[in-house]
Every structure is written in structure tokens, then in C-alpha cells.
Design a protein around this nucleic acid. Structure first.
Length: 479
RNA sequence: GGCGGCGUGGCCGAGUGGUUUAGGCAGGGGCCUGCAAAGCCCCGUACGGCGGUUCGAUUCCGCCCGCCGCCUCCA
């Protein structure tokens, strides 16, 4: 059974499910006010991997991830660009799905939007006001965090030390600087909804509470997101649920940051790299591999060099698929098979067992990957020694385990040949058969210039596409 | 200022109180190949510094140095 680090208790502990056999998970999605960056990409990949792994572990998973489509940054952008908030949100939501689709991230089962949940949020806030834990000021409605038992569970530091900081818009009417807005009174020209507390819009921390409780119910299993959401966002979500007397997430999971040039990447530092920019220079699978090569809670540094490194690792995996003709084993549907089905499918049980053992340990994907690469080495060695059957069994196993991680390998079938390439390959084989190596080498040069990787095999010239060339320096990726 | 994390061989990155101590990438040598590519084999002998505990520490404890993060919108 999977053991995961729980941010609340700060320990790795077994995932204890509300309903044995099925997992309810809620992952904070994105605010669609800008292009998604590689930090969002890592978050999406980490939870996609967790989700796939839970399925592979034989559990059924309901995966909910929200889209925040009303917030200050969206409003600011709309004003700046003379568009409506809805237009801005639509544009960047579309780019979000484009990016995650490209990364091979499975779509959530539910993708609630904040604007569709306003009525439920108003209800929730009204309940908090009625019960006396929330109060109104001239600017909106705030939660009185001092009245919430266990406030600070996720912050993990003395509440006195939580300095209010230079909060831009601190409300002097607040009872405590830590109190946060549940409802913001409208300013002119902002998106506005009616409510018992006056026209306005919901505070950010409220939507995830309303959505998760509505779609997954009280006491759902797992709440995730980027580590920078731990405080105050998740703290404040929990505070609301607790104040309502509801049980909230059983388990908190947070993924580590993405660093660029040894510094955290953030909007305020303006050093973020979009997923689009990343995919111009690398196979999307290379980024998944890069993410998998570190434990999900560690910070990772993304650079041109680290992406190229991952790209080369990926090529080793694809070379395996070409050598052993694994294409039919690699479709995504097969990858979603639970462990029992994998084992029943002629895979090498020891490798499968080792994989699950490592992944069960707080998703030790670097360890799992080490096992896979080790199996690949042995698969090739066996085949080199003439035991193609034994090698193929290991190779298939490695490929299927990659599939569990959402990393489909591409064999020869993934590289359809055009007529011209096919002709050149035949011509080259004829030249080689005739001993005309000058001619065959000339054809090879021509094919390489056309972007093909040329390999001689017992069946003659074999072609495959080279991955996206990743040379040259992109300023945003420098160093 | 408060709280926390990290420092492993050229780079990335696991792990462990002690016999053989992942894996990847890069590099060197070899095998295979017409030449390549892919692949295989071999090689580097690492754990920030100083003390302590121990028969023995990279792994436990303390201190120091260095880097980073959170406490404020942020995946």
C-alpha cells in the first residue's frame, strides 16, 4: 500500500482511505490569467503520476481539479487589454489544456470553475457568518481565524510569527491580520454577483472548499497542490471547512518547486518559462522524465542542460522499443492496467514487484526509474547473448512500467516513413548488398540531413525520427 | 527576526551504521559493425567542515560554513 508524506503531520504515512478501494482526490488547479509555466507543468505531471499510480495499484480514482476563472489578475489583465474577464479566462484556460494534453496529463474527472460555484460559495459564506466565525466589514466578509481550532496546522509555525507583511490592501477593520476575505465587496467594473453581504465576488480560498466538499464530500482522501499553496491557501481552505464543522482532507500532498537558474521561478521574479517554450525544444516526454527523476517533493532545477539530459535518457528508452518492437505494448490504455493485470500479462514479476515497492515508498520515482533502467540494461545484454526471448520479456516489462508512469515509449511504428525515405532506405540496402559503401554512406548522409536516425539491423536499414533538436541558446533558458 | 529544508563522484540523483554500497547523462578504454548507430563489458573509487557517540559513520548527535525556501499574490 502506498505511503505518502502528509504535510499536516509531516511524516510519511500510509494512505488511509475513506472508502477502501477508491480514492477521492482534489488538486488545486490554475488561475487562468496567463500562459502556464513549467512549474504548473510539474504540478500537473506529479499529480498525474500519482493518479496513474493509484489506478495501477488497483484503486479507482476520482480526480477533481479546479479552474479559477475569476481573480484579481484576470481582472487586471482584462482591464489592461480592453477585454472581458471571460475572454481572458477562456483564452488561458484553452492554453492550459493544450499544454497539459501535450504533456500527456490525463484530464481530471471534474474541472469545476469558480464562476459556476458562486451560489454555493455564497451559501457557504452565509453559513460561516450565521455561525459567528465570519464577520462583515465595509469591505467584505472575513473569517475570524482565531476562532478556528487548529489554525496553523499546515503553516507549521507559531501563529505569532506569521507577520501580516506588507499586505497591499490591509483592511483596518480586520480583527486579526491573518483573517482572510471570504467575500470581497465589488469595485466598479469588476465581475459582480449578488449576495446577502452586498454585491461582490468570492475570495480565492473559498472556491476549493465549496468544490471539493460538493464533488467529493466530507472527509475526502487527498488534497494536493504546489508547495507554495500550503500556506495560506490550503490553511485557509481547511479553516473554513473546520469552522463549518466539516471534516476536510485526510491527507495533504504538495509537490516541490521548479527552479530556474538556482532561483525559485515565480511571477514576481518574472523569470518563468512557459510550457510552450519548453516544448519547442524538447519532447514532452522528456519533461515528464525530468520530473520523474527527482522525488516529487524536492525542488528541481530546469535548464537547457537538464532538459537535454532527460531527452537523451528518453532516447535510450525509445531505442529499447525499437529494438524489441514494443509498439503494440505501449498504448495508453494498456498503461492504465492495475498491477494484477500487468502480472498476468507475462511481465517479469520481480521487476514489477520492485517497481511497486519503490513507488509505494512516497512515490520514489527515481528509484523506480533506476530499476527500470537496470532491467533495460539486462534486457539488452540477454539479447546480445542470443536470448532474445528473455530480453524481450524484460524489455516489455520495462516499457509497461514506463507506461504506468505515463511515459509511453515510441518504437519504429511511431515513425511512419514517407515514400521518399522508404525509397532511399531500399536503395541503401541494395548498395550495401552490392558492397558499394560509398553509395550507401552517401544515402545515409542524405537521410540524416532529412532528420532520420539511421540504424542497420538484421532486417536492413531502419529509420526513425530524431527528437526535436535541442541546440542553441534560448535566453529564457540560459545556463 | 521566526520557522523549515538542503549540501553525495564532471553533472543530475537515490540510498545505507560496516562484507558487492542504485540509476541516468557526460567522459575514457574495449567488444560488435564494411564504417556507423544502437547495444554490451570495463573504468572514475563520492558523500561540505570540525568535533562527539560507536569496534566501525557518508548514514546518529552537536557545532560551524555554504546554499535555498516559507512567513506576502504564486504550481
Amino acid at each position: 500500500m502506498l505511503r505518502l508524506f502528509d504535510t499536516a503531520s509531516r511524516e510519511v504515512r500510509p494512505l488511509e482511505l475513506r472508502d477502501p478501494g477508491s480514492v477521492s482526490m482534489y488538486v488545486c488547479g490554475v488561475t487562468v490569467s496567463d500562459l502556464p509555466h513549467i512549474g504548473h507543468g510539474r504540478m500537473a505531471l506529479v499529480f498525474d503520476i500519482l493518479r496513474r499510480y493509484l489506478v495501477a495499484s488497483g484503486l479507482s480514482v476520482r480526480f477533481v481539479s479546479n479552474v479559477t476563472d475569476v481573480d484579481d489578475k484576470i481582472i487586471a489583465r482584462a482591464e489592461r487589454e480592453g477585454r472581458t474577464e471571460a475572454e481572458v479566462a477562456r483564452e488561458f484556460e484553452a492554453s492550459w489544456w493544450r499544454a497539459t494534453d501535450a504533456l500527456g496529463v490525463l484530464r481530471p474527472d471534474d474541472t469545476p470553475h469558480a464562476t459556476d460555484y458562486v451560489a454555493k460559495m455564497v451559501e457557504l459564506v452565509a453559513e460561516l457568518v450565521r455561525s459567528g466565525v465570519a464577520y462583515q466589514t465595509s469591505r467584505g466578509v472575513y473569517l475570524d481565524v482565531r476562532r478556528v481550532p487548529g489554525y496553523g496546522l499546515l503553516a507549521h509555525q507559531p501563529l505569532d510569527s506569521l507577520r501580516p507583511g506588507a499586505r497591499v490592501d490591509a483592511d483596518p477593520e480586520k480583527r486579526s491580520p491573518l483573517d482572510f476575505d471570504l467575500w470581497k465587496r465589488a469595485r466598479p467594473s469588476e465581475p459582480t454577483w449578488e449576495s446577502p453581504f452586498g454585491p461582490g465576488r468570492p475570495g480565492w480560498h473559498t472556491e476549493c472548499v465549496a468544490m471539493s466538499l460538493d464533488l467529493l464530500g466530507e472527509d475526502f482522501d487527498l488534497h494536493g497542490g504546489g508547495i507554495d499553496l500550503t500556506f495560506p491557501h490550503h490553511e485557509n481552505e481547511r479553516a473554513q471547512a473546520v469552522a463549518l464543522g466539516r471534516r476536510f482532507a485526510r491527507h495533504w500532498v504538495h509537490n516541490g518547486r521548479v527552479m530556474v537558474g538556482s532561483e525559485k521561478m515565480s511571477k514576481s521574479l518574472g523569470n518563468f518559462v512557459t510550457i510552450e517554450e519548453l516544448l519547442e525544444r524538447a519532447d514532452p516526454r522528456a519533461y515528464r522524465l525530468l520530473v520523474l527523476r527527482s522525488q516529487y517533493r524536492s525542488p528541481i532545477e530546469v535548464s537547457a542542460a537538464s532538459v537535454e539530459d532527460a531527452q537523451r535518457g528518453l532516447e535510450r528508452l525509445d531505442a529499447l522499443a525499437r529494438r524489441f518492437d514494443l509498439d503494440e505494448d505501449l498504448d495508453l490504455e494498456a498503461s492504465a492496467l492495475p498491477r494484477a493485470a500487468l502480472e498476468a500479462d507475462g511481465l517479469v514479476e520481480a521487476e514489477v514487484a520492485r517497481f511497486f515497492e519503490r513507488m509505494d515508498d512516497d512515490l520514489d520515482s527515481p528509484g523506480a526509474l533506476a530499476g527500470i533502467f537496470d532491467a533495460i540494461g539486462r534486457a539488452n545484454a540477454l539479447a546480445d547473448q542470443g536470448d532474445h526471448r528473455g530480453g524481450a520479456a524484460l524489455a516489455r516489462t520495462a516499457a509497461r512500467l514506463c507506461g504506468v508512469l505515463g511515459l509511453p515509449l515510441r518504437g519504429a511504428a511511431a515513425h511512419p516513413l514517407d515514400q521518399h525515405a522508404r525509397d532511399l532506405a531500399h536503395e541503401r540496402d541494395a548498395a550495401r548488398a552490392a558492397g558499394d559503401y560509398e553509395r550507401s554512406d552517401a544515402i545515409r548522409r542524405e537521410l540524416v540531413a532529412l532528420g532520420w536516425r539511421v540504424e542497420d539491423t538484421p532486417r536492413g536499414t531502419t529509420l526513425s525520427r530524431q527528437g526535436p533538436a535541442s541546440s542553441g541558446e534560448d535566453p529564457s533558458f540560459a545556463r
